[in-house]
Design a binder for these strands. Sequence first.
RNA 1: AGGCCCUUAGCUCAGUUGGUUAGAGCGCCACCUUGACACGGUGGAGGUCAGCGGUUCGAGUCCGCUAGGGCCUACCA
Length: 875
Amino acid sequence: MPEELSKRYEPAEIEQRLYAFWEKSEFFTPLLDPERPKFSIVIPPPNITGRLHIGHALVNTLQDILVRWKRMSGFNTLWLPGTDHAGIATQMIVDRELTRDGISRFDLGREKFVEKVWEWKESYGHQIIDQLKRLGASADWTRLRFTLDEGLSRAVRHTFVKLYEDALIYRGVAMVNWCPHCRTAISDVEVEYEERASKLYYIDYKVADTDRVLTIATTRPETMLGDTALAVHPDDERYRDVIGREAILPIANRPIPIVADPILVDREFGTGVVKITPAHDKNDYEAGKRNDLPQLQVIDEGGKMNEASGEGFAGLDRFEARKKVVEMLRASGALREVKDYTHSIGIHGKCETVIEPMISRQWFVKIEPLAKPAIEAVRNGTIRILPQSWEATYFNWMENIHDWTISRQLWWGHRIPAFTCANDHLTVAVDEPASCPECGSKELTQETDVLDTWFSSGLWPFSTMGWPDDTQDLKIFYPTDVLITGFDILFFWVARMIMFGLRFTGEAPFSQVFLNGLVRDEHGQKMSKTKGNVIDPLDVIDEFGADAVRFTLAIFASGRDIPLAKARMQGYAAFANKIWNASRFAMMHIDTTIAAAKPIDRDSMRTVERWILSRLNDTTRTVNRSLSEFRYDEASNAIYQFFWHEFCDWYIEMVKPVLLGRHGTEEDQQRAKRVLLEVLDRSLRLLHPFMPFITDEIWQKLGGHEPSIMVSPYPIAEEMLEDVEAERMVKAVKAMITKVRDARAQRGFTPKDRFKLYVRAEGRDTTFFDAYAYLLIDLARLTEVVANEDPPAGVQHDVVEGFTIAIEFPEKVVTKEQQERTERELEKSRKELDALDAKLVNEQFMKNAPPAIVKGAQARQAELRERIEKLMQNE
RNA sequence: AGGCCCUUAGCUCAGUUGGUUAGAGCGCCACCUUGACACGGUGGAGGUCAGCGGUUCGAGUCCGCUAGGGCCUACCA
């Protein structure tokens, strides 16, 4: 006998207790059994600096649903969790803490600082993991990894050395994206472009030894201090005569050459003359190399003007310098014009600082040889990216990919395993060599730069399993099956994992990638603190329960962006309560446990029982199919509709007369209890991946074979449970009941008022009425149901699902609204019939349409004719 | 500039390979404290599927154009 439940579902206590139970029971840890079919997935490692936001909640809910589904479906399932050291972000946080204490990291020195960051990590780095647990994430915490762990660090060094030996990593001087705030180089993908309102300054440059003046346009006048040439298009008639001459750089009064460059200069744009600053602009850098121009750096690593920028400028911030340059130009009359101008500028996403292009010595990955097989893997279907439209984006990026700047001038991260000896010989090795292999020098210094964080996360699917060692985990769980992550890190992370995975393990690290959309607010706006529309997952878990939050995220997750509203969570919290109460009702009647229940004798079942099992079966099929296609929305919606609107609204109501002893035999009641338990049990198991807490709480009380629903088998659809006849019959009964309720309401009667119903079902077995009259009486609240008998004159007829029905109301109270509605319905039916009539005499239709469609149309035609006829009799 | 996506009920969205009467949640209106649940029940209103054209026996669904919106990529001074 199951225990009783409280009247309302209270998630807080239950969630905590159950999660502890699951974890203690080691349900999250798979077996080391290579014989069993496996399912594996790795978490997109959240930054240790992170606090669970709604995006994390989404991506981890989606993973957990998949993982719980697969685990219950018999797969030896591993969800491998971990965190990312997040180089810049973490360093910034600890930096800020130091600033608060009045010191800088430079006061501490590198070693002490890194120690400090580790301390910070120990104190705060697990916060996000605890928060994932609140969501119900069933990851195997015994395998928790961190990108800076010794094991993963070794994998990183190993990779670096391999790539270096294969000449795919090189050190070189090039123009990179430099963040003056973080004082480090960053890669192309880390630069975000923003449209900003700015100014376009037109500046006059005098041509030496002539009267000519050339006007150039620039958005960055301060960089003119580093100009080393002007450029025009070689075919531009206007400027042909000045090519090869010199221009005088205003302010600095320096002569600079005027060169011809067809690549840099667009004749149509601006004045057709361009200033060239090879040290502070990507295009100019290239143009400088083409034209053999000197590179004059005028801005330093902190974004301040340096000595070379000239007297009065050195030490000035680049934006201050801009103002000063403009002032001076204006004063000297060289500033011809200033126009408003909107253009996109590069920003460092982490700190919002405007990127300064700089020439510096960095480490790079030669990416093309890695990209090629990665493109091929997606092209030939080894890896599928879903929704598929992302594949185009992937190809577009991979085919135009640039070398990857992997060195960072930070202290927190994987220090590049490159060593330079006193004689300047470079050695790259996994472990620090005792002496220089070339000259034997013992004076070795390690490269101070660290690696881009994404370099280590790019190895995540296999570094976390123990690579480069040949471990059990790798043998059993690699490659993984699916990767679920946000589309915003397709380039940062997914592409790099594919490249590294193929290169180092010879296998694609996963066969499917599901990219989920962005969580937005209810009006499709991006969530942001300034807009005040941020939904904090921890708050809503407190408010509505983790199950409701998960379900809300799931029911929207089709791969598109998710418009999230608290109202929806409230709705699904209500759903949880509905589940709770339906179970409560069931438990009031069920007198056995799942484990002790006898198998159902299917032959003895009545139509409504066959119907609900048929519906459940269909739902089961939909859920399994949808989940295999990442259609979380479809899957969750199917269960929701089934549970609430078929099981609760209809089946429970239909079974009440039997359960409460108003109808049927003792045997009927026993069977009804058994079916009720069966449907509840299977529904809960279907629901479990979406709503793990409430389902387990109830299910454990129902006494299953296993200690928890999460280790019980997931339902699969069975062919034999489909029952077309039962579905048709119940559909008709439901329609009749609805019709009666509607007619009653339209006439202004309340549910207490009971009437007599006449049903005409020509040619049907009258046992139908013996079997179902009680349902009509009970659910439609009738006095009696009379079969195949004419009602007294004046009683109105209607036709429902092939049955003619008539309700005997005490008097003909037909309101105006009622009359109008009937007329509207009649009109609609006539229109539809006209269209059908036309269709069915159309030879083309009869010839081309499939027989089932034609048959359907004919049946509909017959029904409409009868309905119109009956409705007209009423008038 | 190139690419991708979107436009269906008041709001937010589903709608499989074209096929009977276009659905859901919330919101709205009316009624109901019926022995699981008022976080509930019952019934109802509400849509020329952005517009135009085409293919087809048949188009929300396929094709083209137009309008509006979003996203991504790109070195436009």
